[in-house]
């Protein structure tokens, strides 16, 4: 049985409103490379007043539930609104009503490692990512290319370092 969006939203809401955290597998790539498809997120309950710029929040936008980064905080008629955006999305989301905030992402788990979002270094990275967020559609493809070229260079360097003796030995298999 698949847990649909509505059921997932209701169950999440109930768990968070009890003051407990939530742990689930993320789907989609709108926060890539920071959060990738298949990463496991832990979310804790949070109020708008405690959300800082750069935080990744778990919220309802339209009929979807997303974990997106807060890139702006605006105040209108004494009410605080949050503006969010997926790191790799070209545009920001509609301003978020306080009641649509469900919680705040506190850890991301990938390949058995857990990255905490509430540490000082993570806060700095989050802030940096918020600043470059408007240019993400240009910056991320360039960074991906640089990473790809670096990994090719590393592989080439490693191949040259291997001696013929080592290669022959490993191919022998006796």
């Amino acid at each position: 049985m698949n847990c649909g969006t509505i059921e997932f939203l209701e169950l999440s809401n109930e768990i968070l409103s009890r003051g407990s955290c939530l742990r689930f597998r993320a789907r989609g790539g709108s926060m890539s490379p920071f959060i990738r498809d298949g990463d496991v997120l832990k979310v804790k309950p949070a109020e708008v007043s405690e959300i800082k710029l750069g935080d990744v929040i778990f919220c309802r936008t339209g009929n979807r539930i997303v974990a997106h980064r807060v890139i702006k905080k605006v105040s209108e008629n004494g009410k605080g609104f949050l503006v969010t955006k997926g790191d790799s999305s070209p545009n920001s989301d509609e301003p978020l009503h306080p009641e649509d905030l469900l919680g705040k992402v506190v850890t991301v788990e990938r390949n058995g490692l857990s990255l905490r979002f509430d540490g000082r270094v993570a806060r700095l990275i989050n802030l940096l990512l918020t600043k470059i967020s408007p240019f993400s559609r240009w910056i991320y493809p360039v960074l991906r290319k640089v990473k790809h070229m670096l990994s090719l260079g590393y592989q080439h360097f490693n191949r040259r370092k291997q001696s013929p003796f080592t290669t022959n030995q490993s191919q022998g298999g006796v």
């Binding site: 847990c3 169950l11 999440s12 768990i15 407990s20």
Partner: peptide
């Protein structure tokens, strides 16, 4: 569908 809250975490 049942979700157990264990050690203060509801784990999907």
């Amino acid at each position: 569908i049942l979700v157990l809250i264990k050690q203060d975490v509801g784990d999907f």
